[in-house]
Design a protein around this nucleic acid. Structure first.
Lengths: 363, 363
DNA sequence: CAATTATTGGCAACCGGTTGACAAATGCGC
DNA sequence: GCGCATTTGTCAACCGGTTGCCAATAATTG
């Protein structure tokens, strides 16, 4: 091999320049130490522990770091400490707009607190979810499960290894964020009763959905209170398509008002009923759940029991981050009596739009 | 403090049991080596390089690994190699449904190929985007930028450090995935012309949006071809709200048909016009772009130029992963003439729904 | 059966920070 | 000026894999 002749010839001599590891030129704490004239470990402390080094050394090091455009290597830090400044969010279905707001709320909070969000989905399957969770475990500091489909024991097992916060479900011993459905449901049912309805159908969601069960309970309770008859119908899947499919059962049920497990079902149901010539709300009232994006685009716009989903996402993230930071009390609770660690309850409310109302006398 | 009496009180004796680093009990290759009776480095090779060790040693090691429920520590692997099996996706706005399908497509592909998706948003800001990108650089193998708002040079700078794929924009020297707007637009404009329209307004998107510029060009060209007049209107932001705000300008423009930069604008515009008593499409035709979730919920359902967004997300992910794997030719191209590395073009098409049609004689 | 070559396994250095233990330097009161 | 308590800095081991290099072993060949 010959000597390179021109200064820049070095670039062409070796193999094509590979992408460097981390951004720019990746200075290390050793480079900083050299520039600042101190020991690498002093640099490490100056950059992580506050007040561990003298003010002037601190300044010296910070200046050197700034000059070298230093950025910590997250892996090098994660290896000995296990901390990654990252948390995972697993949702049941990315295509379901319900989760958009949750994702958004969690992402915003994460970014604000200098964490990174890692996203995965379970495709509405308990086993996929468990797999995803296990995969994530290795790389995140904590996990948020939105509407988990695995069973309580699996969740608790996961929670034993890493802090976990659950959204839309209550699991003993695990911090949860759940909308309290009662207020919104009772408002909805009272509104229906006031409009002269007597028989209400509830279209249920996935069998493993904790929230679907709560909503059905709420509907039953509210109907009993208002002296309405409540019947339960099953859906194949909690989507627009599932809503279309359940239309036949809805009509057969004889109910004049329907509450569906979520807005997607409501929208599909409404489309199918309208296609069959029914007028909403004159012939049948429809009420959804969640108030997702697009719920007000329909004609008539959808009446729905709103859950503050963005708040749920943000709340869960905040809870998790607080847990991670101040490694507080509830860790003991968890290994103790087994009672719910923390449960953050958020309010639901009825959003009255055009899809529900007074029944018109049959023409 | 009294002595614990019961066996399970051990939990309260020492410090509260910390969460372990990685899932379960985190066996290491050293544990495997011990069980299998070989050297740790042999384990490493057996688990990463195929065919580097004998078949029986391989089996021995794999059995031991399975028995110990071994999972690699991603940080330990990333530290020396720089590989993380992770890539980042930065979107302009998480709340914008346009990106939902892109995220979904990318996520699905990532999971399939055993990669993890990390999500961030730029809040429609070039500087936020650059910051997010820099932060990610350290932890991902590559980056997908969906509708980037930063300028070409910044993108190329990023792309010099790590493989980057851009969606909804063409950047010299960087692999891109772009919908080819021409087919869809010409279909749309021809449809409008056939319905007797003469003047078409285009409501533009963000000034930094490459795609908005392409769409405007496309609209101009198609209108010229069909001998229609085209005017351009500006929007404040590419959201439903922005659509409402632009309604005044639309009416003032005298156009009888409107194409908007995206569906969100179209929906907001339609809402506002209808609120003012206009009948769509009798008095004005509205055509959006993208065919997002909910575009068919409106009344009338929205006519729109569909971009296969899920395909874009999946395509970008595939492109990136291929790039990462077979570290092929275009790396040279990049340092060479500076021509676009690869550009994946996807087709657009008109989805004709109810919001566009024939103009009725003014009553 | 010995010599040569192809495989396979082992050693050790390294990736880039973190942290406990300890020594040096500083400040303090007496 | 001396002893003691603090503060500040240094050393070295460690986190858990990866990989170049060399030796040992196995397979191949004459």
């Amino acid at each position: 091999m010959t000597e390179p002749k021109t200064p820049d010839a070095a670039a062409t001599t070796g193999p094509v320049k590979k992408h460097s590891r981390a951004g720019k030129s990746s200075a290390t704490i050793y480079d900083i130490a050299k520039v600042a004239g101190v020991n690498p470990s002093t640099v490490s402390r100056a950059l992580s522990k506050p007040g561990r080094v003298s003010a002037k050394t601190q300044k010296l090091i910070e200046d050197a770091a700034a000059e070298l455009n230093y950025q910590v290597n997250p892996f090098a830090r994660a290896l000995p400490t296990g901390r990654t400044n990252t948390f995972g969010l697993i949702v049941a279905d990315i295509t379901n707009p319900t989760f958009f707001d949750i994702i958004r709320g969690a992402e915003t909070t994460a970014t604000q607190r200098d964490y990174t969000l890692v996203l995965a989905e379970s495709a509405e399957s308990g086993v996929t979810e468990l797999t995803a969770a296990r995969r994530m475990m290795a790389t995140v500091d904590g996990l948020i499960l939105a509407s988990p489909r695995m069973d309580d024991d699996d969740i608790r097992t996961i929670a034993r290894d890493k802090p976990v916060v659950v959204i839309n479900r209550e699991v003993d011993g695990v911090p949860c964020v759940v909308p309290d459905v009662n207020k919104g449901i009772s408002e909805a049912v009272r509104s229906l009763a006031a409009n002269g309805h007597h028989k209400v159908a509830f279209v249920a969601g996935p069998p493993q959905s904790w929230m679907s069960a709560r909503r059905w309970e709420g509907v039953q309770a509210a109907c009993e209170w208002s002296r309405l008859e409540a019947v339960r119908l099953e859906s194949t899947k909690p989507t627009v398509d599932g809503g279309r499919q359940v239309a036949r059962d809805v009509r057969a049920s004889g109910a004049t008002a329907v509450l569906t497990y979520n807005d997607l079902l409501a929208i599909g149901l409404m489309q199918e009923l309208q296609a069959a010539g029914m007028v909403i709300p004159d012939q049948i009232s429809i009420v959804g759940f969640d108030d997702i994006f697009g719920a007000d685009f329909t004609t008539p716009p959808l009446t729905t029991v709103r859950s503050p989903l963005g708040e749920c996402g943000a709340g869960a993230a905040t809870l998790l981050l607080d847990l991670l930071h101040g490694d507080l009390l509830n860790r003991d609770l968890l290994h103790g009596a087994g009672e719910p660690a923390v449960t953050l309850r958020v309010e639901t409310e009825l959003v009255l739009r055009g899809s529900s109302g007074r029944l018109l006398p049959v023409g």
